[in-house]
Design a protein around this nucleic acid. Structure first.
Length: 270
DNA sequence: TGACTGCCGTTTAGAAATCG
DNA sequence: CGATTTCTAAACGGCAGTCA
């Protein structure tokens, strides 16, 4: 395939040493290795060490999904430079439980039943789905309000931590997909041609920690928009979107935090 | 079994284009 | 012009899998 050939040619110049081996992370069974190299897809071995490579394929102009984290460990895991991370996490988790309970009560009340702390058989027996996309509009609104209240609290935590700019910026590196100091992030942007019949490589973007570190230091928290379930942090050349959503079913109090980056200039809103 | 992760798909608001 | 249609990116959704 033409895509892969061009991508390889872009990657080569970024690797100073001779390549002595390449392996695919998905095929490695050793968990310790997988853990160490985070979101890498490929490991390139050179004489002086291993370079992890994260490959991304994305429509040009679209957000590139860099991380999907679990909400109940998000702060602790990705903002571990902060002493208070554990405390904030606990607080957040309590809020998640409370909001979940409240959402359950509200929804059960709408169908004239009593919420006992979880979505039980009676929910399904009444013919309602566990997937938010299948819900009647009024119920969907309740569910989304829950997401929004939760992301609002996450915003408050991030805002507080962001005053300590250095550790905060370092934490953000993880979220934009550079979880390892030697990581090369390779994003292939493609665009549709002849009416969506086929695709064509538009550009290839390659980033690493060293150059990203500069930009990340200039982060700016965008004002919180209570209408939506995401927040945004802006950098000189790109923006990071942090979104909360259910893992899959909304009927359990566990959510995931999707992080995506958008390159190029989006027109400022203000 | 519930928490977590990666990757990708669908719906929809509102911008842009086109029409009468 | 305002009304209407078209189009796109933002917002929202979900599957398939791992792991403890």
């Amino acid at each position: 395939m033409e895509f892969s050939k061009q991508t390889t040619q872009q990657i080569f110049p970024r690797i100073k040493e001779n390549i002595v081996g390449v392996s695919i992370v998905g095929k490695i069974e050793n968990l310790r290795i997988k853990e160490e190299f985070k979101e890498a897809d490929l490991l390139v071995a050179t004489h002086s060490g291993i370079i992890p490579i994260s490959l991304k394929l994305s429509k040009s102009g679209a957000f590139v999904n860099t991380k999907s984290a679990g909400a109940k460990s998000f702060i602790e895991k990705y903002f571990s430079y902060f002493q208070d991370a554990g405390f904030y996490q606990k607080e957040l988790n309590q809020l998640i439980e409370r909001n979940y309970y409240h959402m359950g009560q509200t929804l059960y009340q709408m169908i004239g039943l009593d919420f006992k702390g979880e979505f039980d058989e009676s929910w399904l027996e009444e013919g309602y789905s566990e997937l938010p996309g299948q819900l009647p509009l009024e119920m969907k609104k309740i569910v989304q309000k829950n997401y929004q209240q939760t992301i609002s609290h996450i915003y408050a935590i991030l805002e507080k931590m962001s005053h300590e700019r250095e550790p905060f910026a370092r934490s953000l590196l993880n979220l934009i997909g550079l979880g390892h100091p030697d990581m090369l992030q390779v994003i292939c942007f493609n665009k549709k041609i002849n009416n969506g019949e086929s695709y064509e490589l538009e550009s290839i973007y390659i980033g690493d920690c060293a150059e990203k570190m500069q930009e990340v230091g200039h982060f700016e928290m965008m004002p919180f928009n209570p209408q939506i379930s995401s927040l945004e942090i802006r950098f000189p050349g790109f923006q990071l979107q942090i979104r909360i959503k259910p893992m899959n079913k909304f009927t359990t109090p566990s959510y995931k935090i999707n992080c995506s980056v958008h390159y190029g200039v989006k027109h400022a809103k203000s």
